[in-house]
Nucleic acid binder design. Sequence first.
DNA 1: CGTATTAGCTAATACGCATTAGCAACCCCA
DNA 2: TGGGGTTGCTAATGCGTATTAGCTAATACG
Lengths: 353, 353
Amino acid sequence: MTNPSPRPVTTHDVARRAGVSQATVSLVLSGNPRARVAQATRERVMEAAEELGYRPNILARGLVRGKSYAIGVVVPDLTNPFFLDVVTGAQRVAAEAGYAVLPGDTRESTPSRHLEALRARQVDGVIIDGVGAAALPHDALSELKVVVVDEPSERWPGVASDALAAGRLAAEHLVGLGHRRLAFVGPATDVHGFRMRERGFFQALRAAGIALPHPWLVRTPPTVSGGLAAMKTLLASPSRPTAVFCANDLIAMGALKAALKAGVDVPRELSIVGCDDIEMASVVTPELTTIAVPARELGARAARLLLRQLEGQEVSVKPTRLLPVRLVRRATTAVAPAEGTGDREQGTAGNNG
Amino acid sequence: MTNPSPRPVTTHDVARRAGVSQATVSLVLSGNPRARVAQATRERVMEAAEELGYRPNILARGLVRGKSYAIGVVVPDLTNPFFLDVVTGAQRVAAEAGYAVLPGDTRESTPSRHLEALRARQVDGVIIDGVGAAALPHDALSELKVVVVDEPSERWPGVASDALAAGRLAAEHLVGLGHRRLAFVGPATDVHGFRMRERGFFQALRAAGIALPHPWLVRTPPTVSGGLAAMKTLLASPSRPTAVFCANDLIAMGALKAALKAGVDVPRELSIVGCDDIEMASVVTPELTTIAVPARELGARAARLLLRQLEGQEVSVKPTRLLPVRLVRRATTAVAPAEGTGDREQGTAGNNG
DNA sequence: CGTATTAGCTAATACGCATTAGCAACCCCA
DNA sequence: TGGGGTTGCTAATGCGTATTAGCTAATACG
């Protein structure tokens, strides 16, 4: 049952035990399942393998097949639950196909350096999300199968959510609640997903005939502390918006935090909409209204797309259907406060930091 | 600089270009840095490698050296930021040493199955945290170097935080605030860390002469929804505690959520203490008082310990110094409400679900 | 000048597996 | 009985690297 020997069991060991050649063992245990091996022999080999506790050495297999059966996933920040979900989604389908995934974020590194390390590991392919694949040095990805998430590309296939709709839904929701004084908080980035969320938001506003004053477009890192700082800025501005759309939930949670701390009544004085619908969105108080984005599904699809390439199938680089997003109404949005006479409305509840 | 060829550059390619043998290339590029190779030759090889963009094949290297230069990290739940931090901490030191880390959680699987997969990958070792390593089938870990986190073992070396102190600090903090009616919410588990937190809490209570009524010890999964359900239970009990210690921050956040939803004034009617100090603890409102546990440091130390073993050094199985934890006072704890006349105090603010 | 010694390199081999060419035995049918 | 086909297996080889034994040439020494 178990093997007490320190040395792992190899196909040779199994072969010796089953009284066949190593090649036969390999045929039975790995090769084409309909290889020409007599049923009796096949059973004898499998039995021997079982008894010895044989376990194929994936490294060796990879060496001869020229594959490592591992893929990398590169995201900007694993502590962002959204990206973690993407990784998790990918991991699940990869695992089913016998692939390992090497996740990594670029907080303490750069995409290039990370890809470097992944290539040294001979990963068969990588999934790239949120790090601006298009801007990567051209040879960082050569010899590598790639799938990009939330970023259109003529070079690699990809999967994406409907980020434009995300922004639009947020805008329409807020406008529908009567808000006319809207702000946007998002990162200054070339990451496509973020830009689309932003663009969708502004497009919808324009369609509604709403312009957004300059100080109400706040640039900040897509993190909780980023959102916190951004909201402080907004609250300090001479005239305040009645609603804010944040490019992701972390920003939104930071913004919410800052608003509550400043004594602002959310949602009655200020509505906040996030994006992603991470678990914490429904844990904070008040619960965060947000746009749900199917992170795990994105990861899973990306992995499937990548695996299909790795199995040698041709995969179209054509843009695929965008995964739908949807508004999740919770407690941080409400009808716009009565308009008063414009800007002086601010400060109802004390606007100290 | 780059190689347009589809086939990766090998030592043979470098050898040919430098006019030396493959063995020499290997000596220069990987072997003992003080191998007997003439300086001129060494430079010629390095130059050729550079020009061709040579990158060692870690799989092949692993095959011959009998190592994969990869380690696994097994945790119960990667979406718990605490465990993610452990993984991240490990990843950083592993990466520096040229090791990859294969993280995985056991949400959709079992520790055994996960270890199975890791062994198939020929990982050189594993870090195990929070999945009850002691209870694992004995051969699941044979032939594997192991480091356990937050779990004493006579079989493997480990690192741990002072979980007993965590529980004690929570208890002392609450007792110091005048609370006498204390509850505990934690998982029914054999995971050592959780048990120690619990034990520390109860030990300190006993020392203070406080007994905890049976209905105030609530078992629940260590998740947000677990905490939510647990707090509902507590609030429905005929007599309510004035303070609750939760075995981790996720539970605490769920509990906080449920309390606020029920209209309970936290912290004036009810104090809540969490454990771990994940980032979100300071994002929720009111901010969560908690016991900070150095997750990344745990992961980093675990990795160092494991790597030391992998480099062939002997590592003691003796328990090491426990990493200190500390109380982080925030806004979910306050002095105990005036005692009134005992149990009838409950329900001040509506105790509907 | 002959013999040790050393420096500097290479040929050969192994790691564990997958894969292919090919051998031997057997079958079928004429 | 014999030729062609098929079945079932194995020997041999290679994947890219690390490592060792050993060769050659140069240097040192008596």
